[in-house]
Design a protein around this nucleic acid. Sequence first.
DNA 1: TTGAAAGCGATACCAG
DNA 2: CTGGTATCGCTTTCAA
Lengths: 326, 326
Amino acid sequence: MAVTIKDVARLAGVSQSSVCRALADPDQVRPETRERVETAARNLGYVPNRAARSLITGRTGNIGVVLPDLANPFFPSVVKSIQTQARRFDYAVFLSDTDEDPAVEVPLIRALAKQVDGFLLCSPRAADDEIKAFAGQTPIVVLNRRITAFPSVTADSADGMRQAVAHLHALGHRRVAYVAGPRTSWSNRDRLRGLRSATTSYQMELIEIGNVAPTVQGGTAAADLVIASPATAVLAYNDLVALGLLNRLQARGIDVPGRISVVGFDDILLAGLVSPGLTTVAIAKEHIGRVGVELLLELMADGERPTASRRVLPTQLIVRGSTGPR
Amino acid sequence: MAVTIKDVARLAGVSQSSVCRALADPDQVRPETRERVETAARNLGYVPNRAARSLITGRTGNIGVVLPDLANPFFPSVVKSIQTQARRFDYAVFLSDTDEDPAVEVPLIRALAKQVDGFLLCSPRAADDEIKAFAGQTPIVVLNRRITAFPSVTADSADGMRQAVAHLHALGHRRVAYVAGPRTSWSNRDRLRGLRSATTSYQMELIEIGNVAPTVQGGTAAADLVIASPATAVLAYNDLVALGLLNRLQARGIDVPGRISVVGFDDILLAGLVSPGLTTVAIAKEHIGRVGVELLLELMADGERPTASRRVLPTQLIVRGSTGPR
DNA sequence: TTGAAAGCGATACCAG
DNA sequence: CTGGTATCGCTTTCAA
């Protein structure tokens, strides 16, 4: 059987209460007591049982992370930064991948709710209302999406799209296509909104294609539609889609960027490794996780929404070989 | 405050015990009682508190996954398959990334141990003995490594390397280099072992380079050493390293596969997307997670090591453009 | 500064 | 088949 606080108390010759205090708040006990407790605990290899603790404190020391698809390299980056920041504050991470299925999201949150102190929902796909049902019940911070009632961390897609469109316009492009991601994706809508406004102000024509899955497959499937369109440049929902496009365009013998320029979104690792390199809008992925955890900690501490509860991170166009003059 | 079993009991007009039974084992109570309990629970939105339950049952319903680096696309694939299989048996997943630091691994396991029923250690970097210290204490299944005393799931690297070497030999290569991964990596030693035996039996010369980090950076750094060596082909510890090599070789104007052929290991998504495509040894990544969970469930159920406790999954050489005739 | 004791919420045993 | 009750390990009053 595992070693409990009782064993430590017995060995140290003090009461459970003192062990508890010595470990939780060292300067609440006499230095000598503390010393003895610490030695005893160390000798026995005592590790407090978090289940028991959480039963009484109501806190678990865990945060739940829910995301649509770990296979999209964007998410592992975010998760890593969440982990790093969470560990700094002694929180462990519960991870759940929903496989892009909006239907499993809510039940999942409900099931996990008792085991975590709060949630970071990355790009959740469920409807606003479904998620809002949790407001006031569990601390939730939303990443890559904005939902009233929750703090959020998002990227400035509008500005990213403006940079991308400015770049394409400068290269001489006047007709661009957008390959849309999942209909359920808030980022998709946000990016499209930004793109529309940018193309309008540059007086460029926008051809909308999709929706497709946010994967390489999705991009591959959309490529032929792009070729058949009058567009000379294509912006993809994300880098995976862009890479799928790139791949299929090359397979069909289309010159990139000679005949068609391609722009992605996210700046995942692969973007710099393919050739031609993928021009893409970079998001500060590490910041998303870090800021998300910070907001969540505030939220869990106060029970109040943090003061600056909508953080919008800057985006940055990274120009590589997949875009060129018309 | 959250709704507890007491509230349900009161509303249903039965005892706590009956509520418990009705929910846990429906045909242990009278249909009518069951009915009333279920309605009451539903109306109140009752969700059992897992902390309380685990306190008494000793089970948590969680499994812990520890891995070195989520940024290596190999691991997300494994995690996804773990999730899928775990969910099927109503287990939730605790994820921890050690950032390739062997020193944090053991403390991490110790810290998590109380919150999970068992661990899946993916490519753990700590020394055998450190991990063995947990034998008999916590159910552990090791993935991508073999440690006596634990069930394991590994890939047949020896066979993979044999396939790769046979391929290179057939293309006319006689001198090959190996860019080694982390010294702490069992897979690295395993792959090297397989490679040595393969090159020996084909009477080829093997030049060992490294160790490098198992990342694109690691490969980039090793590329110049490869160029300076007499090797006409290079096998990398994994695909990320291979992609780093590919990138740097191209940057230095080296023809791939004309002057140097490159072979990776793992077959991550990127491998098929770069050009030339990366020839690589594929592992059944989805199987690793699934089989790992299966072994762990057996282990947790019996407390015994599963009968067939060392599963070795087949490997398969995928030939793409990065290898060619000498 | 310390110890005793009352719970936290669920389960499992033992009577009835 | 059902109800009462001890119990899991820890935290947190309340007295001393």
